[in-house]
Amino acid sequence: MTSFDSKKGADIHRHLHSHLPPDPALRVKALESLAVERGLIAPETIDAWVEAYSEHIGPMRGAQVIARAWLDPDFKARLLDNATAAITEFGFEGNATGHLHAVENTATQHNMVVCTLCSCYPFSILGMSPAWYKSAAYRSRAVREPRAVLAEFGVDLPGDVAVRVWDSTAELRYIVIPERPEGTEGWDADRLAAIVTRNSMIGTDRVLKGA
């Protein structure tokens, strides 16, 4: 049983630090062997999870949701009201989206999402997070100098656009609704979804490319 004893946890971490080779591949191999031998998981199930998050669950899900929000004002209203409920219309609910909130970019407001304390991310709607999202640089700087961070992503934000940074400190998760670009009039949902980037739904991309 888990002890929930901080001193015990810290003692074990120091032991592992002193006695185990740091090579991460070896540590994961040991962990997998221990878990399989304890009957906690089958190796094939690990393969299945990898395939699920490689082939089926990814940012294309979020892009479909954004495209529908652009095309269907009623859906957009439902998404802004309760994103967790709205994405069940696609069957996209799941890991880390039990309290999903959609926040909308406008001509005068830009939204950007970070988790400074760990790396919380809405997995079931955006898939696995990019490595930069989990980097110390992004986690430390997004709240303090969001405009400098955005510039590193190639986003040149005018001074009259306010930035709101959402630090995911609880179990609420965020998806940014980017602005629909000009030149996309008459496009269908698939064509629109194809131009919605993962980074635009995190808020490190802003101006999407239309025609």
């Binding site: 980097s135 110390a136 992004y138 430390s140 700087r141 709240v143």
Partner: peptide, 15 residues
């Protein structure tokens, strides 16, 4: 980590 300085540029392309 929020607000800490000295962590350098975000690994936009490599990450």
């Amino acid at each position: 980590l929020g607000g800490k300085e000295g962590h350098g540029p975000v690994p936009v392309a490599t990450g």
